[in-house]
Simulated scan of single mutants.
Amino acid sequence: MDANFPIIAKGTQLREGGYSAARDDGGNWTGGKACDGRFVGSCFGISATAMAHWLGPGRPVTVKIMKSVTPDVFLAIARAFYWRPLNGPLLPSGLDLITFDFGFNAGVARAAKMLQGLLGVAQDGDIGPLTLAAVAAREKAGALPALIDAFANGQRAYYRALSGFPTYGDGWLARVDWRLHAGLALARGETKIPLA
């Protein structure tokens, strides 16, 4: 639901933090992998490659640009590159949050395909009419909370399988817990969700 975007994005921004310069994080390199391209860092979870795409051809990403990302720029990029491609405006409250934040953190296609797998529709990575119809059927049947819970379980399994889990796993799982609790709060119609 589009009206949820500002509060959902605020929760994501808080979890991503400000400027990051970890050299082993591929998101901090313009080539998208550690030691590939220029090392410029990331900010609010906006990767170097996402910033390059945002700036367009002929405007190289620099450390100065990454350090100067404002909350407004974060919101614009998050809306354009994650919220809209995941069809956040058409997802019901709660499912929009858990889909968007996972997509922001793990990739749009991965989030879309995982949701589609849970719904039993083709996993093409595009949350289009068939996926939305399957979501609507679950919502009509009162099964939206169960879908959100299953999505959280799938996300936990995804993170546990990553090589970085021993280092970052506690944070990843805490983020899934936030997605689950905040998403269920939105699904219940609560107007305030936990941001921390």
Score class of each variant (00 low, 15 high):
Q13D: 05
G142T: 08
F81N: 12
R15W: 08
V108H: 00
A196V: 09
P57G: 10
A174M: 11
E16Y: 12
S47I: 02
P57M: 06
A134H: 00
D25F: 09
C43T: 04
L184D: 04
V63E: 05
A109I: 15
V176C: 02
A22V: 13
L118E: 11
G125W: 13
E139T: 14
G125N: 10
V135D: 04
Y159A: 03
D126Y: 10
L186Y: 03
R23P: 06
I77K: 04
F100Q: 02
Y159Q: 00
R156E: 07
A187V: 11
T12H: 01
S42R: 15
G94W: 00
T30S: 11
D101K: 10
A48I: 02
L55V: 08
G117K: 04
V40F: 04
A9I: 02
A182F: 06
V73K: 05
A152L: 07
S47H: 06
A80Q: 11
R179P: 00
H53V: 06
A22K: 14
V121D: 01
R175P: 01
A106T: 00
K67G: 07
M114N: 03
L14S: 03
F100R: 07
G142V: 11
A196P: 03
F165C: 10
A111Y: 12
A112I: 03
A157V: 15
L95N: 03
L132V: 14
A3M: 01
I98Y: 03
G41T: 12
A141T: 05
N87L: 06
P145V: 14
H53A: 11
V73T: 13
P194D: 01
S47D: 01
Q123K: 14
D126I: 15
L95Y: 01
I98M: 07
K192M: 10
T99I: 00
M66F: 07
G117W: 02
G31L: 07
A80T: 12
L132W: 08
Q123C: 10
F39L: 10
F5E: 05
Q13N: 05
D124H: 04
A50T: 05
W178D: 01
F151K: 13
R84Q: 11
G164S: 14
K33Q: 12
Y159E: 00
I98C: 11
L86K: 06
G171S: 13
S47F: 04
D170S: 15
G17Y: 06
N87M: 06
G37I: 09
A52W: 00
A141W: 07
S163P: 04
A157D: 15
W172L: 09
A122M: 14
F100G: 02
A112H: 06
A122K: 13
F151W: 02
L186H: 04
K113C: 15
A150D: 14
K67H: 10
L147W: 09
G154K: 14
Y159S: 02
V63C: 04
